[in-house]
């Protein structure tokens, strides 16, 4: 339904969107995730025909958004970052105006306006002036505006901003109920929103796509294999023997070890003198915890703690979008690249 190929947009020397490619199938919900200024809004504005791309193409329902702009715009409902409302108009007359400029036939206009108000749950405010509404209601008027002509494609730029928790759930449910019959792109920087509502996630940073997958896959693939954290009181042979031991365990990729601070307490509240803290990464899909524990204990060391570190979507997001101070790529980024290639 939506095909974006090698799309770039530059403002002068600044590349807001840098060579991104993705597709959204009919009926899917795509989450567009990224920190502020990542290029989400710019991409959406290109899709809606508000901005021309510098290079690359975007097609909606097979129509180029630039060449066939009017035909594309007819098929799109768009909620920009700030709801595009006229404060002096009443909710109903505003939606009537939007329906008119979206070319909704006069015979069904009234019904469509009513339906959009129902969907956005603002029917009780229909005769109120928009300027008298709270921020959450204004946002929902904006949402109703995007739905009023029953478009095939709905593009929502941060649809839940300014809503209270109850309204957020309502809007998410509304979005989910639209899936299947509508194709939806929504942008957000709130992670749970993506895992709750979206079929696919595109993580974008500095105008580039850094990861793309389903929320569940993304979480598991990007876990970077297993990362295991150990706290060990080194026995015979000391730290070097311990390191060699861990390196020898099958599946271990990397061992990072540092002595725990002298005065600090270990996680159980014991004095940490002579304690070592290890972070061990293993190849994806292998659980090395059992073998690791056996090896450490059999080597005569005292194993105080062992736990697997799980990356939440939040960690992945931060890993993917935070600049690393050094050149070394983190395992999460590596596997993000793997995830993209294996798509």
């Amino acid at each position: 339904m939506i095909e974006v190929e090698n799309l770039s947009k530059a403002y002068g020397a600044v590349k807001a969107v840098d060579n991104i490619t993705f597709r959204v199938e009919k009926g899917q919900i795509l989450g567009f995730l990224g920190p502020n200024g990542a290029g989400k809004t710019t991409t959406m504005r290109i899709l809606t025909g508000y901005l021309p791309a510098t290079s690359g193409t975007a097609r909606i329902a097979g129509l180029d958004v630039f060449e066939k702009s009017l035909a594309v715009r007819k098929r799109i409902g768009y909620l920009p970052e700030t709801p595009p409302i006229y404060p002096e108009m009443s909710v109903a007359s505003y939606l009537d105006f939007v329906a008119r400029i979206k070319q909704v036939p006069a015979s069904v206009r009234r019904a469509r306006v009513n339906r959009a108000m129902e969907m956005a749950n603002i029917t009780d405010k229909r005769n109120q002036l928009i300027k008298r509404l709270s921020r959450g209601y204004k946002q929902r008027v904006g949402l109703a505006q995007a739905l009023v002509h029953d478009p095939e494609v709905i593009i929502l730029d941060e649809p839940t901003v300014g809503l209270d928790p109850k309204q957020i759930i309502e809007v998410r449910n509304l979005i989910k109920s639209l899936a299947g019959t509508h194709t939806i792109i929504l942008s957000t920087h709130i992670l749970p929103e993506v895992s709750v509502t979206c079929d696919r996630v595109v993580i974008i940073n500095h105008g580039r796509i850094v990861a793309e997958d389903s929320p569940a896959n993304l979480t598991s693939k990007l876990r970077g294999g297993e990362t295991v954290h150990l706290e060990v009181k080194a026995g015979a042979g000391g730290a070097d023997a311990l390191r060699a031991l861990c390196d020898g365990v099958e599946g271990v990729v990397r061992v990072a070890m540092e002595p725990m601070a002298r005065a600090a307490l270990d996680s159980a509240g014991q004095d940490s003198a002579g304690m070592l803290s290890l972070t061990i990464e293993s190849t994806p899909g292998r659980d090395v915890r059992g073998r690791l524990a056996a090896a450490v204990v059999s080597g005569g060391h005292e194993l105080r703690e062992l736990r697997a570190i799980r990356l939440s979507l939040e960690d992945i997001f931060l890993q993917l979008t935070t600049e690393e101070p050094h050149e070394e790529t983190s395992p999460a980024q590596q596997s993000a690249a793997v995830a993209r290639e294996s798509r």
């Binding site: 025909g49 508000y50 009017l70 715009r73 799109i76 768009y78 595009p84 006229y86 400029i101 979206k102």
Partner: peptide, 14 residues
């Protein structure tokens, strides 16, 4: 200023 230009310019009107 209100951002409604974005509504007009993304609607199917010239």
């Amino acid at each position: 200023k209100r951002g409604t230009m974005e509504l007009l310019m993304t609607s199917p009107i010239t």
